[in-house]
Lab assay of single mutants.
Amino acid sequence: MATGGRRGAAAAPLLVAVAALLLGAAGHLYPGEVCPGMDIRNNLTRLHELENCSVIEGHLQILLMFKTRPEDFRDLSFPKLIMITDYLLLFRVYGLESLKDLFPNLTVIRGSRLFFNYALVIFEMVHLKELGLYNLMNITRGSVRIEKNNELCYLATIDWSRILDSVEDNYIVLNKDDNEECGDICPGTAKGKTNCPATVINGQFVERCWTHSHCQKVCPTICKSHGCTAEGLCCHSECLGNCSQPDDPTKCVACRNFYLDGRCVETCPPPYYHFQDWRCVNFSFCQDLHHKCKNSRRQGCHQYVIHNNKCIPECPSGYTMNSSNLLCTPCLGPCPKVCHLLEGEKTIDSVTSAQELRGCTVINGSLIINIRGGNNLAAELEANLGLIEEISGYLKIRRSYALVSLSFFRKLRLIRGETLEIGNYSFYALDNQNLRQLWDWSKHNLTITQGKLFFHYNPKLCLSEIHKMEEVSGTKGRQERNDIALKTNGDQASCENELLKFSYIRTSFDKI
C-alpha cells in the first residue's frame, strides 16, 4: 500500500482533458527560462521544448504516446526543470519506465491550478516501474492521483506527508504495488545497510526511497516546507523545498512566496507586481503582455491589467481597466465587458449561442446573426445582446428569417469595421425574408467608422429604411451602385405612401 494514499474509496472516473512563447529569463536562482504550460502528445517531438525550461508557468501534460519505446527515452533528460506552477499529468506514455532521468531536479509542483483537485496525476502508464522524482520536495496545493499503472512499484516507500501538507485526498490505487509483488529495495538494503531515512506512518517504520538508488530526502521537522541542505541544516524561511546553503534567500532552489532578481522575498516591493503567484514583474512586463494579447485571437491570451499590486489576466467583477495605466478602477454604474472572439468572429444561430455573449459591452471581433427560429426570440436576444455598444469588426445579418427588427441591439452605437466582410463591408444584410426595420432612427444613433453597407434580398425592408441608415451611420456616399439592390429590397412591402385627393359631386333626387 502506498504510504499516505487512500484505498478502496469510491472515486469519480478520471477524465483526461485534452506555445513556446518565453516569458522571460528567471535569473540567477533558476538555471534556465520560464516556459508556458505545455500539452505534449502523440510523439516526442515537442518534448524537446523543455530543454531550457527551469519553470513551467502553467501545467505540463505528457500523454497518448503509443509508439514510443524505452530506448526512445534513454537520452532524454531535462535537468534544468525545477518547478511547475500548476500540475504534472502523465497518461498512456508507452515505453517510459521512470522519471528519474527525465526530470531529475523537479523540486516543486505548486498546484496553482489543479487537474480535478490533483497536482500530480500518473494514470495508465503501462510501462512505468517507478516514479523516480527523487528531488520532489513540495506539492504546495492539491493532491496526488496514481492509478492503474500495472508495473509501478516504489510507492509504499514514499512518505507523501513530507511532500504535501495533507495526504487525506491522495488516491493511489490499482498499481502493481497493490499486489505486494514489488519487493522494493532501498539503497544499501541488499548489503544489509540502512542508507535512507525511515519514518513512521500508520504504525509502520519504513525506509523512504524513490528507487533502488535514490533515497527520499527527509528534512528535520523544524525546517517545515522550506527544505534543508545535504547536511540537514534548514533553508531560509522564504525558500521552498530545498537550498544549497542554509538561511540564505539567494540560495533557495525555489521560493515559498515570490522570486525577485535572484532572491526569494515575502512580497513584491514597489515598483514590482505579483505575477502568477510566484514571481515579481515590473510595469513594462505587464504592459507588454497586455499589448501582445490586445489584437491576438490565441486562446488563453489575456490583456493583463494591474489590481491590488498584482498583474492579473482581467479586472475583477465591479472594476474596469483604465487604459492609460492598466489599473483596475471601480465602475460607475454597470461595468464594461470586452469579449474577445477566439477566431475573430462568432455566429449567433440560437439563443444558446447568444447567451455566451451575455453582459458583453464591447465585441472584439465580428458578429454573424443567422437565426431561423426560436421561442420568445426578441426578448431572449435583447437579454443577451442588448448591452453590446461596440463591435470592432463587422455585423452580418444573414438568412435570419425569424427577425423582424434589429432593435434587440438596443445599445449598439459603434461598428468600427477594423475587419470587413469580403474585404469591403462593415454591415452586411443578406436574404432576411421578414426583416422590416433596422432601428427606430428617431431614437437610435449608430456610427460606422469604416467599410460599406450591403443589402440584398431583404424583400420587406424598404429602401427608405436603408437610406436612413446611410445618413445616420455616416456611410452615405461610400456605397457603390450594386451594394444596395434596388429590386430585391422592399419588393414585397408597401414602401411608397402617396396622399390621394378626392373630389365629389353631391346629387339628390331633384338636383344634379
Rank of each mutant, 00 (worst) to 15 (best):
G300W: 01
C234T: 01
Y259H: 13
D261R: 03
W210G: 01
K310F: 14
H236I: 03
V218W: 10
C215D: 03
L289R: 09
F66K: 02
V265F: 13
N295Y: 12
H274V: 14
G58A: 00
L106D: 00
V34N: 04
S98F: 03
T329A: 14
I82A: 12
R46M: 10
P249Q: 07
I82E: 10
L64V: 06
S161K: 03
N322W: 05
C235Y: 01
G188Y: 08
E124F: 03
D178C: 02
I146R: 00
D39E: 08
F73K: 13
N309T: 11
G37T: 10
I222A: 11
N325R: 11
T45E: 01
C335S: 04
M38K: 11
I139A: 03
E130I: 09
Y273L: 07
N170E: 04
D165M: 10
E180Y: 07
D72W: 10
Q299K: 14
S296E: 10
Q303G: 10
L102M: 15
A198W: 06
M38G: 10
G188N: 05
K129A: 04
H290P: 07
C255L: 00
T68G: 06
I185S: 03
E49A: 06
E314V: 10
E124R: 02
R297M: 07
H28D: 06
P36W: 15
T157E: 02
L128G: 01
L60T: 02
I82D: 15
L240R: 06
R92T: 02
L64K: 04
V93L: 15
M125T: 07
D86V: 01
C228W: 00
M137T: 04
K193H: 04
H290S: 06
M125D: 03
S296Q: 13
Q204R: 08
L233G: 11
I84T: 00
L131W: 00
Y272L: 08
G300E: 07
R113L: 05
D247I: 15
I306V: 14
E57P: 00
H290G: 11
Q245L: 07
I158K: 01
P336H: 12
C53P: 00
S143N: 04
L63E: 02
S237E: 05
T45S: 05
P79G: 11
S284D: 01
N150P: 10
E180T: 08
D72R: 07
Q303P: 10
